[in-house]
């Protein structure tokens, strides 16, 4: 089973690595964007899907990472050695502050408190025209460099982002399977029980919040490096909403889901809106169809297809990680 998975993983990686040879530049750019938003959705998924904390303020970290990168690139150096770590540090700092407050509330109030903080950060970015360019956004950001390599060529940039994506994906996969990840899943399923078992659940949730925030910041930083531009609309609550939808549509609590969700949303938004001005209608109908027919998201569709094809096979269902947790307990 394990070996089989690695082969598949290798196959995907190879396919992605060869993409620049058969994708057009526009589609490659689209793929870059999907990978970046994929990282962003994965980071939120750690909170929503694995820890059971639904946040509607995740764009805050994306925005902070993005603006930190943009400002460093403009004022100091566009070198990735400078921009990425600064974004990472700033988003860790901010998420640890916001997280401290957000740990005091739960459920729906958690959702709204994250929204409140992200809107406060939005208004800060919106108002500080001197630092962030205000509503006009931060533009004219030089293209990223690493050592002597200039990443203004999208193909180089693609490989760089693919590597970072692979690292984040693998890292998170390992994390959610680790004992730490299993505790998070336990909290999602029943926090009181985990507490009574002696786990300091607040500390676990807090760590999960910071990791999610940090990775969100990384995604934001990559976004700025890719676009050479960042505007307040990417920090607005609609951005938090759309990344939450990517996670839900893809399949919360799975590794592949959020990435597929990001891909679907980006492709839908780009392609549908080229043909009709009624793209919101079509996307809305697709959301509704998902809820009615595929409440488990894209991954859910795939799984039920696979299950139907191989009905006789015994199921080892890894999209239901609480089974693993029970085994551990």
């Amino acid at each position: 089973m394990k070996g089989n998975h690695s082969i598949k993983f290798l196959f995907i990686f190879l396919l992605m690595a060869l993409s620049p040879f058969f994708l057009s530049l526009f589609h490659l750019n689209l793929l870059i964007e999907i990978l970046i938003l994929g990282i962003f959705a994965l980071s939120l998924n750690l909170l929503v899907g694995y820890t059971g904390l639904v946040s509607l303020g995740h764009a805050a970290f994306f925005g902070i990472g993005a603006y930190a990168s943009g400002i460093v690139a403009k004022e100091l150096s566009p070198n990735l050695i400078a921009t990425l770590p600064v974004s990472l540090l700033v988003s860790i700092l901010v998420s640890s502050i916001i997280g401290m407050f957000c740990m005091k509330v739960s459920g729906f109030y958690f959702l709204m408190l994250t929204l409140a903080f992200s809107q406060m950060i939005y208004s800060f970015i919106h108002q500080s025209t001197d630092l962030t360019g205000g509503t006009n956004g931060l533009s004219g950001i030089p293209s990223p460099q690493l050592g002597g390599v200039d990443f203004s060529n999208p193909v180089f940039l693609y490989y760089l982002i693919l590597l970072i994506f692979a690292a984040v994906f693998t890292g998170l996969s390992v994390l959610v399977r680790s004992p730490f990840g299993q505790v998070l899943i336990g909290i999602r399923e029943n926090e009181t029980r985990m507490k009574s078992m002696g786990y300091n659940t607040t500390l676990y949730k807090y760590s999960s919040f910071i990791i999610a925030g940090a990775l969100g910041g990384v995604a934001g930083s990559l976004y700025t490096n890719f676009n050479g531009f960042i505007s307040p609309s990417d920090v607005y609550w609609t951005m938090s909403g759309s990344v939450l939808i990517m996670v839900i549509i893809g399949g919360a609590g799975t590794m592949a889901g959020p990435v597929l969700g990001a891909g679907l949303i980006v492709i839908l938004e780009t392609i549908v809106s080229s043909y009709t001005n009624m793209w919101m209608l079509i996307i809305g109908v697709i959301f509704i169809l998902f809820v009615v027919f595929f409440p488990k998201g894209i991954v859910g569709i795939g799984n039920s297809l696979v299950n139907n094809l191989a009905k006789s096979k015994p199921l080892y269902n890894e999209s239901k990680p609480e089974a693993v947790y029970k085994k551990d307990a």
Binding site: H5, K8, M16, F22, L23, L25, P154, T254, G263, I301
Partner: peptide, 24 residues
């Protein structure tokens, strides 16, 4: 199971997108 889905979908998408235009 996830990986199966991932593979099929990604392959399909990439092939679909690759069908048109010059390569990057």
């Amino acid at each position: 199971m996830n990986k199966n889905v991932l593979i099929t979908l990604i392959t399909a998408c990439l092939l679909f997108l690759g069908a048109c235009g010059n390569s990057a």
